[in-house]
Amino acid sequence: MLSLARFAVLGLFLVWLGSTAAGSEASAPATVRFVADPVDFTAAFGDGSVRLLFADGRDITLPQVSARAVVRYSDGETQLTVAGGVARLEFNGLVYLAQAQDRAVDPWERARRAGVGFRAIGQEPGWMADIWDGERIELLLDYGDTRITTPISSAEHGQDGQAIVYRTNEDYGAVQLTVTITPGACFDSMSGEAFPASVVVQIAGSPRKYTGCGRWLQ
């Protein structure tokens, strides 16, 4: 794992070079350019791998090592992780972050179009939760290696009258968990992006609390 002293978190932006498949809102472009001083490279996503073409002529192909909502490519030295609209590149001992700019392919916009009412994300290790109010929650933990889908209650107000609480439906859900959403400024620890609410996910029987940020999509 890279030490914090070696992190160089840069303000990057994405320029989509490819185009989506005709008539398909969920299709992502096959080619993405990442630009930031001194890094400039194009990521060409293929079937099971990504090819990184750097402006200085370097050419690196990374095999895909995770195929869930958090997509990861790695050759053991260089790693590219894409999740929740944020791309993370670990390269030459540094970490670079980038975020999708085109709303037509932005994962948050795709989630909204799919009916997700609220999305939350957290880091170390990366996790994400999509909530359909009164219907279900889809929870991805450990960079997408663990997936939990279970029925969930409609929103309830917390004891303080401010927080919003979702609970799994005990009659149908095999996994019991609670999601607490508290309105107020929250900043993602990896990207620094601002969100309108902080989120805590607690799973029954686990000593860990998953903390992060989120926003309403509907």
Rank of each mutant, 00 (worst) to 15 (best):
Y172N: 15
S154L: 09
L177I: 11
W127F: 12
R88A: 13
A174M: 14
V65W: 02
A55K: 05
D40P: 08
S49D: 11
V165Y: 00
P107D: 00
Q64Y: 00
C213N: 00
L4R: 09
L140F: 05
S154E: 08
D59L: 00
R6E: 12
D106I: 05
G115N: 10
N169H: 07
R51C: 04
A36D: 13
A120R: 02
R51W: 05
G46T: 03
C186N: 01
L14W: 06
R119K: 14
T150N: 13
G184V: 03
G46H: 04
E25K: 14
A30M: 09
A28K: 09
Q218I: 12
W127Q: 03
V32N: 07
P125S: 11
A5G: 15
L52S: 00
L141T: 08
L141I: 13
F34R: 04
I137A: 15
Q176H: 13
D75E: 01
P29R: 03
G117L: 07
T42K: 03
R51A: 08
Q123G: 02
Q162Y: 07
T146I: 14
A22F: 08
Q159K: 04
R113W: 10
Y96A: 04
Q123H: 06
V199A: 03
W132S: 05
Q162M: 06
I152M: 15
V105R: 09
A174I: 15
A197K: 12
L139S: 02
F187N: 02
D160F: 00
F118G: 02
G117I: 04
R110D: 01
I60C: 02
L141N: 02
A185T: 12
G23S: 11
A111L: 12
G11Q: 15
V201W: 07
D56H: 03
I60Q: 04
G134D: 11
V9M: 06
E90V: 14
E109H: 01
D59S: 04
L80T: 04
W16Y: 11
A194C: 02
L140H: 15
Q64A: 02
V165L: 00
W16H: 12
R110F: 05
Q101T: 11
V116T: 15
L52T: 04
V179T: 12
T78K: 00
G57M: 02
L10M: 10
S24D: 11
R72C: 10
L62R: 05
R88P: 15
D171N: 11
D133P: 08
T78N: 01
R110M: 05
S191G: 04
I152R: 06
S191A: 01
V32A: 10
T178Y: 07
L89Q: 06
T20G: 13
M128S: 03
Q159Y: 01
Q101L: 10
A69S: 07
E77P: 00
L97D: 00
L2T: 01
Y96Q: 06
S206F: 13
Q159E: 06
L62N: 06
V70R: 04
V201G: 08
T20M: 10
F195Y: 11
Q162A: 11
G184F: 03
A155N: 10
P125V: 11
G117T: 06
E135Y: 12
D145Y: 15
A69Y: 14
G192N: 05
E135S: 09
